[in-house]
Amino acid sequence: MPTRPQAPAIQVQGLEKSYGKLRVLRGVEFGVARGSIFALLGSNGAGKTTVVRILSTLLKADAGTAGVNGFDVATQAADVRESISLTGQFAAVDEILSGRENLVLVARLRHLKGPGKIADDLLERFSLADAGARKVSTYSGGMRRRLDIAMSLIGNPPVIFLDEPTTGLDPQARLEVWQAVRELAGQGTTVLLTTQYLDEAEHLADRIAILHEGRIIVNGTLTELKQLLPPAKVEYVEKQPTLEDVFLALVGADSKDRNVGTNA
């Protein structure tokens, strides 16, 4: 597969898209450096998914250009599809097949050698080895999402799109997905992540862009974004006991270790 290392992994200029009268994207611009994690933040309906669908060749833009791995999404769609993997908002896995069969299916569709070995390696890596032979319809939400991401890694595409990868997951499953994303970036894969969870962007992303009313209103590192607000002030606030403090004081120290992670 031809790659063009000099080009940024993703380059978007003047992207516009309307659904009927609704102007979802009104000139979106951003770039993503190779091997970095880029988070696209926005509220529901801000157009994050529309951007991802255009970048993954599922939707045509009305105006503007978008390049992925140096290829234009409109004119070199086949090359773009060779370069990417998409994990959509809903775990796109085949419920009737087993986890292993899902992985083998994708490996064969990517025309790779040894699909069985690829599947077994990924099952191991995503802690699904024991569940590999079971039908996906018996999986929990977290397992499905892990399988979904594992399917996206097959063939080591240089660019991965994760559209709200942790929506609907419990805190534990969320941490597992975060871990997987960090490992990916560690291996040099470029990750474009959309999310509505601010802490997710904070924990994972090298750069964060906020999509609002069809435009990117800010784009920078977390530190840069924080500098947009006036510097933090030191204030003294009287600390009232919370119900939790009261509860723990009354019930005793036995329960202390149980309150870890209840703020999720």
Partner: peptide, 13 residues
């Protein structure tokens, strides 16, 4: 509905 259609469409097949 399940999204697997879109997964196939975004793959080099």
């Amino acid at each position: 509905k399940s999204g697997i259609f879109e997964r196939f469409q975004s793959m080099p097949i």
